[in-house]
Design a protein around this nucleic acid. Structure first.
Lengths: 346, 346
DNA sequence: TTGAAAGCGCTAACAA
DNA sequence: TTGTTAGCGCTTTCAA
């Protein structure tokens, strides 16, 4: 029984030989050992250790028809989400969940429009078992592509499609943006505030739309002058706050659609000498450490579990894949809860 | 000749049958078509199109012993690099290059110390042909792991190992930090500045060390009071600037180790009423759009091509993989050039 | 230039 | 409970 040449990885055959069992039994042990008698399990395990055996992924994949990999699709315009802590947290959640299930994360960056072909080919090539995609654009081609390739896909953030063709129910994970916004505004009202302004996010994103809807749920008779649109940046929040103050100097509260814009609002409020929360109460959304930790006064905000959302996306997908084998139905969407975190700004 | 059941991907066998050739010939065509007569090539190509054939990756990988995937390893403490535009640009460069070579990017996030085992197992499992790793810590276990697994690896940023064991030459890509810093400081001196301060980055990172070295190359007799250490953040740059001003109110120039810190310095300078560049000239490093676009005055800085570095890392690795098959030597490291970009701050 | 045939390393019926 | 056997879909000698 000659040793294999160094550098060559040992095969299951080698393990079986060393343990004195058949390749099938060795395979069973490597895959959990169910239905194999104890002493044999131990023998095989020992052989695996001694040989440093690691299963050949390609061979396994060839027969199981499972790759053990999941694609994360990010559109180029979204490349900036890399610089958004929001995204990094989501990715981390995804990574954790996938890792826990021995599944790999294949990153697919769309550099330009022509890349959709590439992605389509890749997905059709059976390199991955499923896909995770983020904040799609209106009429994004991704859903059609994954559908055609037969790749189960879970979306991050409620898709905001307009075309009927893509309106089909797709599973997604999103925070309860509307409910969270409602809670924030209700809280401000309970505080006795009467002229509550809203700094909305870019209204072509569903998260911004949903938060605005939540605001309107509570303030049915909302005055248009109390509404300003920002771009989810500190700068745009400041600008929106200035506008609002000019239009309605008597406002006594602001609900910003995210923390960054709330921080911008806080800055302007301070510059204009308005006491927070004395004269104007401020509530944000997200509860991002990087922001709430630095504002003065500390920001009251609506918390959402971003990493948890990522984990959930992965879990939903993985569960769907398992069910797939059993020919069951697609997973439904999940809306994660939000919590109002009271600090000093309201 | 019955159609395959819908949903089942066509195999090479099916293509061959449809084209009326052997599987071997079909394979040749799919892989470039070298050594196959024209009419047959066309026939096979047509069959591929009609059937929508896409090669099965696992089967191919099993025989070629190539996975067509490369791992990008990121240590958890570095997870924040997601929020660093530096990283996102590098990743983009990597992604572009890999994509151009039909190679996939598998993202490996190290969540904790225990994960090194997982990574080791993964790399040893032959899931990827090579790896790309970023800014290693002192005595990082990654090099040993990749070496043991026999996975060719290229590093981003000059590794700063202290232990002799890891001192072996490993290929890396880095900007000419030292040279760039030298150029910046020389430029300030040519401007007639005599008391040139330096705001260094965290000195446990080689990029910060190298830039400091470049500064010292020019200012051999540097006064310790003119040196302050920051953390590559705007905030830390501001703090360092304040310190420096307190210690040496007469300084007339500052070279900051990155743009973010330069922005912080600019802010403090303005707060203290120092004219820039009149009284104090300021130079940064990186030339990050997000920063240089927003400072007033516009920031003079040392430009480096970050995306290009990423592309280079990937190219180096890919080239190394090809050479591997020919049993050639490992690729050498590459230092990318820097350029001083003159704007208004100096 | 083409085809026949032998595997790559593994899992999963099926038998024993 | 274990082993035997037949492929998974592809590339690659080797002959023709």
């Amino acid at each position: 029984m000659s040793e294999p040449p160094p550098g060559a990885r040992p095969t299951l055959e080698a393990v079986a030989a060393r343990a004195g069992v058949s390749r099938a039994t060795a395979s069973r042990v490597v895959n959990g050992g169910a239905g194999v008698r104890r002493p044999l399990v131990d023998k095989v395990r020992r052989a695996v250790d001694e040989l440093g055996y690691v299963p050949n992924h390609a061979a396994r994949s060839l027969v199981t028809r499972r790759t053990g990999a999941v694609a994360v699709i990010i559109a180029e315009p979204e490349i900036r989400i890399f610089s958004d802590p929001f995204f990094s947290q989501q990715i981390r959640g995804i990574s954790k969940e996938l890792t826990a299930h021995d599944t790999q994360l294949v990153l697919l960056l769309l550099e330009g429009p022509g890349d959709y072909d590439r992605i389509a080919r890749y997905l059709a090539g059976g390199h991955v078992d499923g896909a995770l995609a983020f904040s799609l654009h209106t009429d994004d081609p991704i859903p059609a592509i994954t559908r055609r390739a037969g790749i189960p896909t879970v979306y991050g953030g409620r898709p905001g499609w307009t075309s009927a063709a893509d309106q089909q129910a797709v599973p997604y994970v999103d925070a309860d943006n509307r409910g969270g916004a409602r809670e924030a505004v209700r809280y401000l009202r309970e505080l006795g505030r009467r002229r509550i302004a809203h700094i909305a996010g870019p209204l072509d994103q569903t998260s911004a739309m949903d938060r605005l809807d939540g605001y309107r749920d509570v303030l049915m008779d909302e005055d248009p002058a109390l509404l300003a649109e920002g771009a989810f940046t500190e700068e745009s929040g400041a600008r929106a706050m200035a506008e609002l103050l000019d239009r309605r100097p008597d406002l006594d509260a602001v609900f910003a659609a995210n923390d960054l814009m709330a921080a911008g609002a806080l800055r302007v409020l301070k510059e204009r000498g308005r006491a927070v929360p004395g004269e104007v109460a401020v509530v944000g959304f997200d509860d991002m450490d990087a922001v709430v930790g630095t504002t003065a006064p500390a920001l009251t905000t609506v918390q959402q579990d971003i990493e948890g959302q990522g984990r959930l996306m992965a879990r939903l997908l993985l569960r769907g894949l398992d069910r797939d084998r059993e020919g069951s139905t697609a997973p439904a969407s999940v809306i994660t809860p939000t919590t109002l975190v009271r600090r000093d700004s309201a």
